[in-house]
Design a protein around this nucleic acid. Structure first.
Lengths: 192, 192
DNA sequence: CGTTTGCTTGAATTCTGTCAAAGCAGGTGG
DNA sequence: CCACCTGCTTTGACAGAATTCAAGCAAACG
C-alpha cells in the first residue's frame, strides 16, 4: 500500500486490511515529467489521481490567454472533478509544473471501490465537502479582497506556491496580469 | 414525507419506505418570514435546511458593507456548509429575502441518518460534489469574465435572481458596486 | 404626506489592462 | 569563454473601467 495515499485517507476514515488491499489494487503508479499534459480541454476526465510528489495546475485557455484555476501539491487529489463527475468534456487543461509521481484510478475503479467499501463513500463525501469549502473561500476572496490583499493572503496561507510557481502563473491565479502583480510587489517593497 | 424534499433526494438515490420515514422524522418544518436571520456571523451553523419555498442569501459583512456570497432558492439546501462541517464559527450571515418554508435537520440528525441509511452517504457525497462544481464555476467566472459578462451570464443562467432580488444585492453578488451595475445596464441598453 | 428604500447620475480619483520596450537571468551552441 | 537566444520580470505611457463620495429622483409604505 502506498503510504502517503493511505495516510491521506486515514485522516478521514479507518479501514480494514482487506479494504486497503482493494484500494492498493485500484491505483496505478505513473511517473510524469514536468510540462506534460494530464488532461486537455474537450477530453472527458476519466481518472482522479493522487499526487505522491510533484506539482500540477489546471488552467483555462480563453482568447489565447491562460487563466490558472488552481495548483495541486503533494498529498492531494488532482483531476477535473466537474468533468469526472458529470462525464462532460473538460473545459480546462491540467499539466505538470514539476516531475510528478502520481497514482491513477479510473472512474470505474472509483465506482467499484465505492461499491465494495462502504466507508469509502464517507471519505468521498468528506473529500468533496473539503473541496467545496475551499472553493467557496476562494470565491469569497474575489468578493471581499483587493488583488493586493489576495496576494498577501496567498503569501501567508500558501507560501509554497510563491516558492515553486513562476510569477506570471501566480498573477493569473490571482485574477490579474503579470504587470499588475509586479507593481503590487513593488508597492509593498517600498512601503516597508 | 415532504414531497419536494423527497423528489430532491430521489434525483440521486433511491430509498426504502422505512428509510424515507427516518428522513421525514429527522426534518422539522419551520416558517420564517422575510428579512429574518437564520445564522449570524460568529455562531456555529448547527442545521442544514431544505428550502420548500422562498428565497434566502448568505453574505459577508466587511467594513460595514454586505458582500453577497450566494442565493438559495426553492428545492435547495441552505446553511453555512463550512461551519456546519468543521464546527468553526460562521464567517457569514444567512437571512431570508422572502417568506420561507424550511425543513430543518441538525448536525446530529444528519449524522444519525448517515449512520442508519448507507445510501444517504452517497447522496451527501453527490450533493457536496455538485456544490463544489458550482463553486468552482463561480470562481472561474471571476477569473475569466468581466463584470459585464458576469451580469450577462447571470441574466442567461439564473434569470430568477434578476426577478426576485434587488439590484444592489445582485451587484454585490457580482463583486461590484450598485453604481457600476447601474452603468453596465445603461451601456447594454444603449447598445441595442 | 413625509420617510425610507432603491436606482441613477455626475465628477474626481485610483487601479488595472493593454501595448510596447527594455532589463535580466539561465541555458545552449559556437 | 563568450555571444546569443529564450523565457520571465519589470517599467513606462495611455486608455478604460470601477470605486468613492455626493446628490437627485422615483416608487413604496406607514
Amino acid at each position: 500500500m502506498y503510504p502517503s495515499l493511505q495516510a491521506s485517507i486515514r485522516r478521514f476514515v479507518s479501514l480494514e486490511e482487506a479494504e486497503w488491499a482493494l484500494i492498493a489494487a485500484a491505483f496505478h503508479p505513473k511517473e510524469v515529467s514536468a510540462k506534460e499534459f494530464l488532461l486537455r480541454k474537450g477530453q472527458v476526465c476519466r481518472h482522479i489521481a493522487f499526487v505522491e510528489s510533484g506539482l500540477l495546475r489546471y488552467y483555462y485557455l480563453v482568447g489565447g490567454k491562460e487563466m490558472v484555476g488552481n495548483f495541486f501539491f503533494e498529498n492531494s487529489f488532482v483531476g477535473d472533478f466537474g468533468s469526472f463527475i458529470t462525464g462532460q468534456p473538460a473545459v480546462q487543461f491540467i499539466d505538470t509544473l514539476e516531475d510528478c509521481r502520481l497514482l491513477l484510478a479510473s472512474h470505474s475503479d472509483w465506482q467499484q471501490l465505492y461499491g465494495r467499501i462502504p466507508a469509502l463513500e464517507r471519505f468521498g463525501r468528506l473529500l468533496a465537502e473539503g473541496l467545496f469549502v475551499h472553493a467557496q473561500q476562494r470565491t469569497a476572496s474575489f468578493l471581499l479582497d483587493s488583488p493586493q490583499q489576495r496576494y498577501l493572503n496567498l503569501l501567508k496561507n500558501r507560501p509554497k506556491v510563491l516558492q515553486r510557481v513562476p510569477q506570471y502563473m501566480i498573477a493569473s491565479y490571482l485574477g490579474i496580469t503579470p504587470e499588475a502583480l509586479s507593481r503590487i510587489r513593488r508597492r509593498l517593497a517600498l512601503e516597508k
